[in-house]
Structures are given as C-alpha cells and as structure tokens.
Computed example of a mutant assay.
Amino acid sequence: MPADSTFLFTVETDDGEDEAVLTRAEDGVEGYVNRCMHFTHIRIDKGSGAPVRNGELVCANHGAMFEQDTGVCTFGPCEGAQLDRIDIDVRDGGVYLVDDDYAFVRTGGIESDPADLGSTSNVEF
C-alpha cells in the first residue's frame, strides 16, 4: 500500500458495486468509501491514487481535505463532513474487509465503459 496515496478496491453492497480506498493513517490503516462528501458522485481516488498532503487526503475536484485518521473534512466546501468509514482489520501483514455492509469484489475501481466520457472534466493533479 502506498505511503503517500490510496489503494483502490471495489466492494459489493445491497445497492450494487461501489468503490473504497485504504489509506495509511498515523496508527495503521483506515478504509473509506471512495466518495467526496461535497458531491458524492465525485471520487477521491480516480484510479491512480488520491493525493495525500500532510496526513490528509485531497479531493482534486474542489480541494477538500480529509484527515486520514478520521475522514473528517478540515478544508473545502464540505468542511466538517466525514467520509463514510469501511471497517477493516489489519493482521498477519494483511488488510481484511470486516464490514458486514460490504463484500470485497476486486482490487481496482468499478469497471466502466471506456467510451463513457461523463467524468473526464474533473481536474487532476
């Protein structure tokens, strides 16, 4: 798992597939649903890892910043909101999904049609 980014994976919920991220926190690893709280259709990790600055995940769309340890937005249009946490367990050198609301599907994001250009207007850095 990268120290300065996120690890993206796909999960299954009662509503279908969704994306989640793992991030290195000060005291271990945290898991969150891969959705910015400003606009929940915006992904924090767009497939190449979310930027991390000074212990915070950065949403490249509008500059929102989320503490890696808590998921709380400390700056940006959704300040005070919190990322939706996914329960994980770290043991024996591995990270395991233990949240009853989610089932692991695969590493990487939701597979989409390459002809779908609906999200290409997002700013990347």
Rank of each mutant, 00 (worst) to 15 (best):
G76T: 02
D87A: 13
D84P: 03
D14Y: 07
V123C: 13
G76E: 02
R85M: 08
V58H: 04
D116R: 06
C36P: 13
T23S: 14
A60Y: 10
V21K: 04
N61T: 09
G108L: 07
E79N: 09
T40E: 00
R91L: 04
N122K: 14
E30Q: 15
S48K: 11
P114I: 05
D89H: 10
Q82W: 05
G80H: 07
P51V: 01
T120Y: 14
A60R: 14
Y96D: 12
G28P: 12
A25N: 02
T40M: 06
G16I: 11
F125N: 11
T74L: 02
D27T: 08
V90R: 15
V52N: 08
F66P: 01
A50G: 07
I110W: 04
L97W: 06
G47P: 05
G55C: 00
D45L: 05
G93I: 08
C36K: 08
T6E: 01
D116N: 10
A115D: 07
F66E: 01
D4Y: 09
N54T: 08
D100R: 14
A115I: 06
C59I: 05
F66S: 03
R106F: 07
F7T: 13
L117I: 00
F125S: 08
F66V: 06
Y32R: 01
V33I: 13
V90D: 12
F39M: 13
T70A: 01
R85F: 03
D14P: 12
G108P: 11
A20E: 03
A81L: 03
D99R: 10
I44A: 02
L117F: 09
F9P: 06
E17Q: 14
H62Q: 14
M65Y: 06
L97H: 06
A64S: 12
D92V: 02
M37K: 15
R85I: 06
P77D: 03
Q82N: 12
C36G: 06
V21P: 08
G109I: 03
E56P: 05
Y102F: 15
V29F: 11
V123P: 13
D4M: 09
L57G: 03
D101R: 15
A25I: 04
L117G: 14
I44P: 05
D113C: 09
N122V: 00
H41W: 12
L83W: 01
T40V: 04
P77L: 06
Y102C: 04
I44C: 09
A115N: 13
I44L: 10
A3W: 10
N61Y: 10
S121L: 14
S5E: 04
M37F: 00
T74G: 05
E124Q: 15
T10M: 04
Y32H: 06
T13N: 07
D69P: 07
G93K: 07
G94D: 14
S119F: 14
R24A: 12
G47Y: 06
D113A: 00
L22G: 01
V123W: 15
F125K: 05
H38E: 00
E19W: 00
D69F: 00
G47F: 07
T120R: 15
A103K: 15
G118D: 09
Y96W: 11
E124H: 13
T10E: 07
F7M: 08
D100W: 09
V58P: 03
G76Y: 01
A103E: 11
E30T: 12
I42M: 10
I44V: 14
D27K: 12
F75R: 11
R106C: 12
G31I: 03
L22W: 03
V21S: 05
V33F: 02
V90M: 13
S119M: 12
G94L: 10
D14S: 14
L117R: 15
F39S: 10
